[in-house]
């Protein structure tokens, strides 16, 4: 139990957001934490160039009692630029150790994850999609996908608080509730991004945090 508490504390200490940009500027570091209705994850990454990042990842599946720790690489395959918008396409993969924890006595397995993310945004509109799959050997093999739409009631200028209202719909075929709906609030201030939402499907929180150094 103490171990779980420590893991939880560590994960919440390192905040990040899968729907924000997972690759930074050349030489930039980013801390990311994601908590959704199924899992809590943390990623610390460094971007050697503006096109990819490498980082350390911990991913705790609270539903299945599986802890994954490993390294993740993310590739910004394409960025579309416009005067009023930006769009991105990312691919990522992670490899490491997956272990059954708490009630899961499944032991340890080599684990891999892969995913794709795409987004399009202006200063007041946001659309994104992501899909991922994981192979934890005998522990778990599963996939998920999610889409998000959002709008900002005002276009915040540099250094101002940016506020977004968003709606996320996710599909997890193996979950008790395969379709999840989560409204959320995104606050963006300087180098920090914070998101708070609530899954209407199974009363679970969404808490994401990201800080870019």
């Amino acid at each position: 139990m103490l171990r779980i508490a420590l893991i939880t504390a560590a994960l919440f200490a390192f905040t990040s957001d899968a729907f924000a940009r997972p690759v930074s500027y050349t030489g930039g570091w980013t801390l990311i934490e994601d908590t959704d209705r199924q899992s809590t994850s943390a990623l610390v990454h460094y971007s050697p160039s503006q096109e990819y990042s490498v980082g350390l990842k911990a991913d705790w599946d609270r539903n299945s009692d599986i802890l994954f720790t490993g390294v993740q690489g993310t590739w910004l395959a394409k960025r579309w630029f416009g005067e009023e918008h930006q769009a991105n396409l990312y691919f990522w993969g992670a490899a490491g150790l997956a272990e059954g924890i708490d009630s899961n006595k499944g032991g340890d397995e080599v684990g891999t994850q892969i995913g794709v993310m795409a987004d399009w945004e202006t200063r007041q509109l946001f659309v994104s999609y992501r899909a991922s799959a994981r192979d934890y050997g005998s522990l778990d093999k599963s996939a998920m996908q999610a889409a998000r739409v959002g709008f900002a009631p005002y276009a915040g200028d540099t250094g101002e608080l940016h506020t977004w209202f968003m709606l996320e719909v996710d599909n997890r075929p193996d979950a008790d509730e395969p379709i999840g709906v989560t409204p959320l609030l995104r606050l963006f201030y300087g180098s920090a991004l914070f998101e708070a939402g609530w899954s209407l499907t199974d009363d679970q929180p969404l808490l994401n945090f990201q800080y870019r150094f």
């Binding site: 500027y25 960025r79 416009g82 005067e83 930006q86 300087g190």
Partner: peptide
């Protein structure tokens, strides 16, 4: 310089740092 794709504070941060 007019910059394309700058839509949020992370964009500003990146250029400020660089």
């Amino acid at each position: 310089a007019k910059v394309l794709g700058a839509v949020c504070d992370f964009c500003a941060k990146a250029m400020n740092k660089t």
